[in-house]
Design a protein around this nucleic acid. Structure first.
Lengths: 140, 140
DNA sequence: GTCGGCCTTGGAGTGCACTCGAAGTCAAGC
DNA sequence: GCTTGACTTCGAGTGCACTCCAAGGCCGAC
């Protein structure tokens, strides 16, 4: 059942030691290209592990981080800022206040942008209403 | 009072005939560069008028369109698609159904994306809550 | 032992949406 | 009549976030 994509893995005993980049990609909805890019660019908490043959091994912890990273990205945080957040987390305990500030700033931005989109969407809805009534008139 | 930025305008009699690109930029929140770019790229309903000296003259109709255009852009519609919408509007009456469909498709996408952002934001809020309680503990 | 398939790296390429620069024109003020 | 400053066009440049490619390595299957 797990014959392909098992290349560099030992799978000696333990209950799943990690996964290939392809699996990680599938589970996170990103592409292997993007996962490598994120690592190269310093967005990962730490370098992903490797097998003896050099293949990446993603752990659940890695995926958890990638998920957080995806949430930040999906809400509009730039790569640059995600990198800053990752750097803080990498430093370890002691800078929680900074991390909190960063996330709160982001949160405020997201709320503002959400409000803006809502406003624009309402105006677009008015336009849609106009076209809809035009269609209704043409339908007679 | 209106001495500068009046360059190409005649201002013979009438109650404001149009405005310069600088004024249009200020009123729409875009830059003159961007306004020119939009026109070049075919996003305007029709080419903006010119003075005898070749300067652009923006009318209220132009600004109304730019506003709509800004709303579409701000809600994530691509330049390419805005261009398609502009092309439909330019064609004149008869394709209201297509325009409606385009806007409704866009609306659906925006709603989906809004929901996604909300979901991600909630997860980020949880994280913020964790840091906040860490801070509270450290505060003692 | 060689083939297929997934992996590696470094670097280059892509698409989008602006954004800027250079060189020139024009009307108004001094 | 010369300077000033906002405008013009065309084309090139920028920043972001991927996205892809070439060349090569490793492993299991045939």
């Amino acid at each position: 059942m797990h014959s392909k994509a098992d290349h560099g893995r030992v799978t000696v005993t333990a209950p799943v030691e990690g996964m290939t980049i392809a699996e990680a990609a599938e589970r996170t909805g990103l592409t292997p290209h993007t996962l490598r890019y994120y690592e190269r660019d310093g967005l990962m908490l730490r370098s992903v592990g490797r097998t003896t043959s050099g293949h990446r091994v993603y752990t659940d912890r890695d995926l958890t981080w990638v998920t957080m990273l995806t949430r930040l990205r999906a809400t509009g945080m730039s790569i640059r800022e995600v990198k800053a957040y990752a750097a803080l987390c990498r430093q370890g305990a002691g800078n929680e206040a900074e991390r909190l500030a960063l996330l709160q700033t982001h949160r405020a931005r997201v709320l503002a942008q959400l409000a803006e989109v809502h406003e624009h969407l309402e105006a677009i809805d008015v336009k849609i209403g106009m076209y809809a009534s035009t269609m209704a008139r043409a339908d007679t």
